[in-house]
């Protein structure tokens, strides 16, 4: 196994770069990072729409989120792969296709996380902001969302871990991410499939487990921040 690693580690990590497009583990992490960064604003927008007081905004978005969450990610990838070129007229490569699919898919999941985060902010916060005269939009922007998003930080790191795993589906459309590279290596060495795929699994494990531990540490650190404490519970009082 050692010589397997020694021979192929560069290919595994960066694909054919610089002699070709970026691939391997670097591409996996890049794709996941970019997808999450783009999915977050979409998720916040969709999450806000999900709690909107206006039905005309709330219902279509709820339907959209329901559909995206009811089908496998691979379905969304296929939608992007087969239909996006004919709708937009632009032929995207595998990276672009996978990125769009991930942004849409993760955006829908983040919408639910954001919605739960917003719901988790005590109603009194909303009332006191409105009592001061702040509009709904100002209240969301300056009071509710800052609190909701800060509490969501560990969830976001976990979502990053999930997205890294999701990038593996790029294999199916020929994206040269790390699983695809592993398969390429396997066709070259042929009789050592178990070793190759065990190494692949180990790579994912180290990356994802490491990030989960980071999320855990982050949660501990955040619990100590002054501006994030839950307010001390007042004594129970009569109505």
């Amino acid at each position: 196994m050692i010589e397997l690693i020694q021979t192929y580690w560069v290919y595994f990590l960066v694909g054919q770069y610089p002699k070709g497009p970026l691939g391997g583990l670097a591409l996996t992490v890049l794709l996941a990072g970019l997808a999450l960064v783009l999915a977050l604003p979409l998720g916040v927008a969709l999450g806000l729409a999900r709690v909107s007081p206006y039905r005309v905004i709330r219902w279509p978005v709820t339907a959209l989120v329901f559909v995206v969450r009811g089908v496998p990610l691979l379905m969304v990838v296929f939608w992007a792969y087969f239909f996006l070129p004919s709708i937009t007229g632009v032929k995207t490569d595998q990276f672009g296709t996978m990125l769009i699919a991930l942004v849409v898919f993760d955006g829908a999941y983040l919408a639910e996380i954001v919605r739960a985060g917003i719901r988790g902010v005590p109603k009194g916060q909303f009332e006191s902001a409105r009592s001061l005269g702040l509009s709904y939009a100002q209240t969301m922007r300056r009071v509710i969302l800052p609190q909701a998003l800060r509490h969501m930080l560990p969830s976001l790191v976990n979502q990053f871990v999930a997205t890294i795993k999701e990038t593996s589906l790029g294999y199916i459309i020929g994206l040269t991410e790390v699983s695809f590279i592993a398969a390429q290596i396997n066709t070259q060495v042929f009789t050592r499939g178990a070793e190759v795929y065990l190494l692949l699994g180990l790579t994912y494990f180290v990356l994802c487990f490491g990030l989960s531990r980071f999320a855990f540490w982050l949660e501990q650190r955040l619990a100590q921040r002054k501006d994030l404490q839950p307010l001390p519970q007042p004594l129970k009082a009569s109505a």
């Binding site: 005590p122 009194g124 916060q125 006191s128 902001a129 609190q147 800060r150 501006d227 307010l231 007042p234």
Partner: peptide, 10 residues
Amino acid sequence: FQQFNLFPHL
């Protein structure tokens, strides 16, 4: 308010 409702992040 009875529950003060200060904004904890500020």
